Amino acid sequence: MTASNAHHDGMTPDTDPLSPGTHTYELAGVVQRYHVHGTGPVCVAHSGGPGIFWEYLRMPALEDHLTMVYVEPVGTAEDSRLPSHPHGYTRERYSSFLEALINRLGVPEVHLLGHSHGAFVAAYHALHRPGQLAGVVLYEGAPVTGPEHGAEAARMVEAFVAKHAGHPGLPDVLAAFEAMSGMSSDEDTVAVARGVLPSYFADYWGDEEKFAPFRDAVRATYISGLDENLTPDVVDDRAALKELTVPSLVVVGRHDVICGLRWGLELDDLIPDSRLLVLENSGHMGHIEEPERFADAVRDFVRETAPRGQAA
């Protein structure tokens, strides 16, 4: 099903929920926005952070083949914040908002792509609300958070430091990582997100002229990672993923420091019949670093797993 022939589901007759542009509605007193670009089978994209604004995840190479529905996760825009902000943004909360959004689109099943923290959300949604999904793309995710994940990230950052020893930009990247644990405001979060970004690419400084505008455009809101009761929303999906029934594509950049190759391989090993794409020349931002290879893999996965009548 393409955007042009989607039927209406609870919307006013003159409002196609998959028409190009920005869509806004209210759910439980919170504003939810999503942004539609492209044509073809529907792929809902959930950005990361939590708290990073959705724009960084634009995928023009995919929009040539798919109707990309970019979710603006609740909490990022000021009018979309929970009463408990900056707390309460659990995976269950994000998934419940995703369920409502997907229901509004009027398509029997969609593909769901989650990047970084969005991949944790996508995995949760596929485990708990699989009926809406024709397939799920776990892009730079991991089966766990917590000390084990942190230790692996620290190891990868050390490797990044060794590789770029003496580079004049390195102290600023390390200072941003040091500041990460003390973030408490939107300003802090933007500074850290932009500050660490060179380490999120396979070779940021090798093509800084290309990547610097992307870095400068990153916007972010501070979200704590705690639930309403100030308890961490810790992830351990290892046991559950062994029972995942939704067709799955795992995408990971070989040089990713934060959700690196170890986790991509483990996700692929845990999930029955999953597919794995390792982007050899990418870090955490393969849709920017290797857009054609990324788009080809996602497009092919969607085509091969789309419900009959919806294939591109």
Rank of each mutant, 00 (worst) to 15 (best):
S47H: 14
V107P: 09
H46K: 05
G286D: 12
P171C: 08
P13I: 12
H35S: 01
G51Y: 10
G75K: 00
G49I: 04
S84G: 05
D296C: 05
S181P: 09
G225V: 06
S199R: 04
E290W: 06
P147C: 07
V234A: 01
G195L: 11
A6Y: 06
V136R: 03
E289M: 01
E304Q: 12
H117R: 01
Y70F: 12
S282R: 06
R262A: 07
P171H: 08
G260Y: 07
H128I: 05
M11V: 15
D269M: 13
V192H: 04
D79G: 08
E208H: 09
M180N: 07
A134N: 11
E55Y: 04
V144W: 02
P168H: 10
S19Q: 14
F177I: 03
G131H: 05
A176T: 13
A212G: 00
M68G: 01
R194W: 04
L133S: 07
T90S: 01
A191H: 09
P247F: 10
H117M: 14
E243V: 03
R155A: 14
H37E: 15
R155W: 11
F201E: 13
G75T: 00
H8C: 10
S116A: 01
A123C: 05
H8V: 13
L230F: 04
V137F: 10
S116N: 08
R238A: 07
A165Y: 06
